[in-house]
């Protein structure tokens, strides 16, 4: 076997532009989905620990329902299932403005929100109950105690597992190619189709994903150090 590498396929013709656009879409898709996931994760993760059962039940239902169905199914659900349920005007607007992108974003965000929720819940549950009691004992409401004390402490404790979950989200954004979102993996496949250069195209994709992951991990390590709670054992960087 004697394969001749031809790396120039990656920047000749349209390839370079495709890769860049793929990278941009992956970043936008993952970035927005991450915001959705973090917001849902914090709210539902906190709700699962509050001293009021109806809230716990709602949050538990969200988590178990969304994280126990494969992401691929959610992609199809948000893309094929949801739009017909929407009012006509919104549906038309969506299909004029990249419906597959928004469907992919929601699928990714809501699915990973359920997983982020577990990370945040475990962070909150590692805080002694007396910390919450001290917060309400000075006159804070339960909501204030969570917003000002419990959640800020929990977020500082969970940076490492939240980083892993964020990387999972980034990598899972590639599943959106199944509903034709032109993200990075979609574009590498396109290059492969046009140039018949599978190894080069996939290598490019791999290297870009790797670079993104390393970048995110570096930023999160910095965040972890910057917001570390004084007095806790320093973790490796």
């Amino acid at each position: 076997m004697n394969y001749q590498f031809n790396w120039s396929v990656l920047w000749s013709g349209q390839s370079g532009g495709w890769l860049l656009r793929g990278l941009g879409t992956t970043l936008a898709l993952s970035g927005l989905a991450w915001l959705v996931a973090v917001a849902l994760g914090i709210v539902s993760g906190a709700m699962r620990t509050v001293p009021w059962k109806p809230l716990r039940v709602v949050a538990t239902f969200y988590v178990e329902f969304f994280r126990n169905v494969p992401l691929l199914v959610w992609m199809f659900f948000w893309y094929f299932g949801v739009p017909p349920l929407l009012p006509l005007a919104i549906r038309e607007w969506l299909f004029d403005h990249g419906a597959e992108f928004w469907a992919g974003m929601f699928a990714l965000g809501v699915y990973h929100g359920a997983r982020m929720s577990e990370v945040i819940r475990s962070g909150i549950q590692s805080i002694p109950k007396t910390q919450f009691e001290a917060a309400v004992a000075i006159g804070l409401t339960t909501f204030q105690a969570y917003r000002l004390v419990i959640v800020p402490i929990a977020l500082r404790l969970i940076v490492p597992p939240a980083t892993s979950e964020s990387l999972n989200l980034l990598k899972n954004s590639s599943v959106a190619l199944t509903i034709s979102v032109a993200e990075l993996t979609f574009q590498t496949r396109q290059i492969e189709t046009y140039t018949a250069r599978a190894i080069e195209a996939l290598t490019a994709g791999t290297v870009i994903y790797l670079g993104l992951c390393v970048g995110i991990a570096t930023i999160m390590a910095h965040v972890e150090r910057r917001f570390a709670i004084p007095g806790l054992i320093a973790r490796g960087g």
Binding site: P128, Q131, A134, R156, G231
Partner: peptide, 11 residues
């Protein structure tokens, strides 16, 4: 209220 375990907010 003052608790046995202080319970200051560590952050």
């Amino acid at each position: 209220m003052v608790f046995q375990s202080f319970n200051l907010f560590p952050h």
